[in-house]
Design a protein around this nucleic acid. Structure first.
Length: 629
DNA sequence: ATAGGGTTAG
């Protein structure tokens, strides 16, 4: 398994220049070990140590073990142990190195303690034990033991590790805080660890308080705040913090930018995307860092600029499974299933990158949004058989969506009833969505019953069911659902659309509202647009209204839909060649979809509409979704 | 030796 430990004919450590002044042999060999570029190099180095009779040096052997265990995958533990066991009197440092590499660090620790005299543990020894502790009580025992030995009750290193440990083992925030409060001396790492402790538990307010109290905020602490807000779905605050950091003159790095970029992705704002791109470019990180690049691919996809995402993807020097998955999901969200599939095929045949379960979510979503049932079935099977990925409930949700959208609602129901994992809300929700498209009231009732139990507070499900009944003219059932909503004290999310004008001001519109300062002009502009569309044959799609009212009233309600108001506002406030970008919080209706298509042709405008789950690109009377949404 | 990083469905 291991290469023969013999000296080759090639120079051993070509990257290490010979010392100009003679240095002690051990020091020289130590730096050679540190720089050995590959596993074979390390094995050769080991052979040299053996020849020179230095295999008993704790100093050198611990470096060797350390370097060996850094490799992926590391050599098996028995191999490391055999190297270790040739050292007659291992020191604390070497014991700790072995302990870190061992599958059972506690066993190694007790062996170490049973020596006579026992080598004194180091801070580093306890941090290694804490790293491998999985329960809070195990960690607390290490903590208590360290204190009982004396000399560690105020050890900065051990205490810093403890803060991190208490959070990692399941959010024991109070214990982490107690350690922090009891520290006589704190450094950057103590402060940042506590900030991260709160933010990993979704508690950004206390995180912010600690941050403000920290007198010497450094780059990492600022980054922890930016990232914390981004990871807790608070993109505005993430970007505000990033702005403050720039204003304070603190240097940022790639990690900070990743936080900022992912915040912009959540905002979905094309203007912010352009801004953060500029920051990344000026800092010189545009194509050199896989993580920044992958985050940018994702960001552009989520901001509606899918072609820009493709350009970033192409320009990257390195790509990994995150990069490909982000690109595939982006293409899927923009209805470009063919390209998503091509990208997947290129990934599996043109690179050594293995797809993971997230990659398949993107790929299956692409198939389902394009109605490519057979392709979807094929890749679902491939995922299991060829890549050995066990389908999760999320994957089943994609499959139910795929079958259901394509009209195979009964087959989708069968799949749910026979799937080996417990279906969650996403799975039943996909089925309910399919029932809405295909008017399947019977299956809808089944799906809804499960959803009302799994997600009793999710309003969307009730609205969907009531709309399905309404479309079928089952008004008694509609009343029943509405009563149930009232009983459970649920209120409908108002539909809204928004767009950002050139100055970055976000204008939000609600159905039928006239609160916008330009409301009168917007309504006039909309009337004019609709008139022009009618000359081209537009007829309002009255079935999009799910209330039992007269046709005139239906037409009036349709005119109030928020995305139409946003469209009129866009026509009024942007230049003739500009793309109009609208975001809507819910699914868009048939009628608005028709209006957008026709407007894109009649007014010669590109319109990008993001609804709650995907992008529609309207151009020349057609939509990228191919009528499948 | 200890702190901050990207991809996920309805």
């Amino acid at each position: 398994m291991f290469p023969p430990m013999e000296l080759g004919s090639k120079p051993l450590f070509p990257s290490i220049p010979l010392p100009t002044q003679p240095k002690p042999l051990e020091t020289f060999l130590f730096s050679a070990l540190a720089a050995a570029a590959s596993l074979p190099h390390l094995h050769q180095a080991h052979a040299v140590l053996l020849r020179l009779g230095l295999h008993s040096s704790s100093f050198l052997i611990s470096k060797l073990l350390r370097r060996l265990s850094e490799h992926q995958p590391p050599p098996p533990y028995p191999h490391l142990l055999s190297i270790f066991s040739r050292v007659p009197n291992p020191n604390s440092f070497l014991w700790t190195t072995l302990l870190r590499a061992s599958p059972e660090p506690f066993a190694v620790y007790s062996q170490m303690r049973s020596r006579s005299p026992p080598p004194p543990p180091l801070s580093f020894t306890f941090s290694a034990l804490l790293k491998s502790s999985t329960s809070a009580s195990a960690g607390a025992q290490v903590h208590a033991h360290a204190i009982s030995l004396g000399g560690f009750d105020a050890d900065l290193f051990v205490q810093n590790t403890l803060i991190d440990f208490y959070v990692r083992c399941g959010g024991h925030l109070h214990s982490a805080r107690r350690v922090f409060d009891g520290m006589p001396v704190r450094d950057f790492i103590s402060w940042t660890s506590l900030i991260v402790a709160y933010s990993k538990n979704g508690e950004m307010e206390p995180a912010g308080e600690v941050f403000e109290r920290f007198p010497e905020k450094d780059r990492v602490a600022w980054t922890a705040m930016v990232t914390g807000y981004a990871q807790n779905a608070r993109p505005r605050e993430a970007l505000e913090t990033f702005d403050r950091m720039l204003a304070a003159g603190v240097e940022f790095d790639e990690v900070t930018l990743v936080g900022a970029v992912s915040a912009v992705a959540q905002l979905g704002s094309a203007r912010h995307a352009g801004w953060v791109r500029g920051v990344v470019d000026r800092a010189g990180f545009s194509s050199g860092n896989v993580v920044v690049g992958s985050a940018m691919v994702d960001m552009y996809g989520k901001c509606g600029l899918i072609d820009e995402a493709g350009l970033v993807f192409e320009s990257m020097r390195q790509r990994n499974v995150f990069t490909f998955s982000a690109m595939i999901s982006g293409l899927a969200a923009h209805g470009r299933a063919g390209e998503a599939i091509t990208m997947f095929r290129e990934m599996v045949s043109g690179t050594a990158i293995k797809p993971n379960w997230v990659t398949f979510i993107g790929l299956l979503t692409a198939c389902s949004h394009a109605g490519m049932v057979e392709e979807g079935r094929y890749y679902f099977k491939q995922m299991k058989d060829k890549y050995g990925i066990v389908p999760s409930a999320d994957h089943y949700a994609c499959m139910v969506d795929l079958l259901g959208r394509a009209g195979l609602v009964e087959e989708a129901l069968d799949m749910i009833q026979s799937m080996p994992v417990e279906p969650h809300g996403g799975v039943w929700g996909a089925l309910l969505g399919a029932c809405r498209i295909h008017g399947k009231t019977h299956v809808a009732r089944i799906a809804a019953e499960h959803l009302f139990e799994l997600e009793p507070n999710c309003i969307g499900n009730y609205v969907l069911l009531s709309n399905i009944y309404a479309s079928a003219g089952m008004w008694d059932e509609v009343t029943q659902v509405r009563k149930l909503m009232r009983r459970r004290n649920l209120r409908k999310d108002p539909a809204s659309s928004w767009m950002e004008n050139k100055d970055g001001v976000v204008h939000e519109f609600f159905a039928g509202d006239d609160k916008h300062p330009m409301s009168r002009k917007i309504k006039e502009a909309l009337e004019e647009i609709l008139c022009r569309l009618k000359l081209d044959g537009y007829q309002p799609v009255l079935s999009s209204v799910v209330y039992d009212v007269s046709d005139d009233e239906k037409e009036r309600l349709l005119k109030g839909h928020s995305e139409k108001l946003a469209l009129a506002f866009g026509v009024l406030t942007t230049g003739t060649g500009d793309t109009i970008r609208i975001v809507k919080n819910l699914r868009t209706c048939e009628d608005c979809h028709v209006v957008m298509k026709m407007a894109s042709k009649v007014m010669q405008r590109k319109i990008v509409l993001r609804d709650n789950l995907r992008f529609h690109h309207f151009q020349n009377g057609e939509c990228s979704c191919g009528e499948f949404w």
